[in-house]
């Protein structure tokens, strides 16, 4: 399994941040985390930067925001995210 999926779009603070940080601790090499969120979580970005993660966001179809998160040094996961985010022709 390369994608770990987490839907926090209907959770109240502080649950989304709490669950995302917990999920990140289980992220293995080559894996990325996909988060469904209803808002852009600015506080999370500072934490991701400090903790050595990269992220990309896009507007979702079912929820307003989709966030892809992977480890900075994980090229395989980054490539998967880039592939996942490329719109199919």
């Amino acid at each position: 399994m390369k994608e770990i999926f987490l839907d926090v779009s209907t959770l109240e603070p502080c649950e989304p941040l709490h669950r995302i940080l917990t999920a990140l601790t289980t992220l293995a090499k080559g894996e990325y985390l996909l988060v469904w969120h209803r808002l852009e979580p600015q506080p999370l970005y500072h934490i991701l930067k400090d903790q050595g993660f990269l992220w990309r966001i896009r507007q979702g179809l079912q929820v307003p925001i989709e966030i892809f998160i992977w480890r900075t040094d994980d090229a395989a996961a980054e490539s998967l995210v880039n592939h996942r985010m490329t719109p199919s022709l």
Binding site: P13, L39, E40, P41, Q42, P43, H46
Partner: peptide
């Protein structure tokens, strides 16, 4: 107004 405007570092 939503959480995107929150700056919790402050």
């Amino acid at each position: 107004m939503n959480v995107t405007q929150l700056s919790l570092q402050q």
